Computed example of a mutant assay.
Amino acid sequence: MNAILYAVTVFIWGSTWLAIAYQIGDTPVVVSVGWRFGLASLALFFILIARNALPKLTRENHKMAALLALCLFSNNFLCFYAATQYLPSGLNAVVFSLAPILNALNLWWLDKRRPTGTFVQGALMGFTGVVFLFGSQFLNADMDITIFLGLGLSLVGTYFFSMGNLVSARAQKKNMPLLPTTAWAMGYGAIYLFAIALFMGHSFAISTTPLYVSALVYLAIIGSVVGFNTYLALVGRIGAAKAAYCTVLFPLVALSLSTVFEGYEWTWMSALGVMLVIAGNLRVFGVPEPVKRWYLAHR
Rank of each mutant, 00 (worst) to 15 (best):
Y22K: 12
L211G: 00
T58V: 05
W294E: 02
S168M: 15
L282T: 11
G38Q: 10
F73N: 04
R293F: 02
A220R: 05
Q137H: 09
V253R: 07
R113Q: 15
A183G: 13
V156D: 00
I238C: 05
Y192G: 00
S258R: 02
R51K: 15
I221C: 03
A241W: 14
V94K: 01
T128E: 11
F148E: 05
V130T: 04
T267M: 04
F148N: 06
M186C: 06
L68W: 02
W35V: 03
V33L: 08
A7Y: 06
S41W: 06
A7C: 13
Y159S: 14
V31H: 02
V213F: 12
F45A: 09
K63M: 13
T209H: 13
Y295C: 03
L149K: 14
W35F: 09
L216F: 09
Q85M: 08
V277H: 02
I12C: 02
K292C: 12
L48E: 10
L44T: 08
M269R: 11
V33K: 10
G135Q: 10
F73G: 02
L257G: 08
G135D: 08
M186D: 06
Q137W: 01
L249W: 09
I221V: 13
Y264C: 02
S41K: 05
Y245G: 08
F161Q: 06
L42Q: 07
I12G: 03
L211A: 14
H202F: 14
K292M: 13
P251N: 02
N61C: 14
G126W: 07
M200G: 00
N52M: 12
L70A: 15
F199M: 11
L18P: 00
K112C: 04
A220I: 05
G122N: 10
S207W: 04
A104W: 00
L179G: 01
F204E: 05
G227V: 06
L70S: 09
V274R: 00
A195D: 08
G122H: 05
V120Y: 11
G117A: 10
T259S: 15
Y245R: 07
L107H: 10
K174I: 01
V131F: 13
M176K: 06
A241D: 13
V131N: 10
L124Y: 01
T209F: 04
L78I: 11
N106M: 11
F161I: 03
M1N: 13
G273W: 03
I12E: 03
V235I: 15
M64K: 02
G223Q: 10
T9E: 01
L91Q: 12
S89Q: 03
A3C: 05
A169P: 08
G129K: 02
T209V: 04
Y81E: 10
L133H: 09
A205E: 15
T128N: 13
G25F: 11
Q23E: 14
T128P: 07
W109I: 15
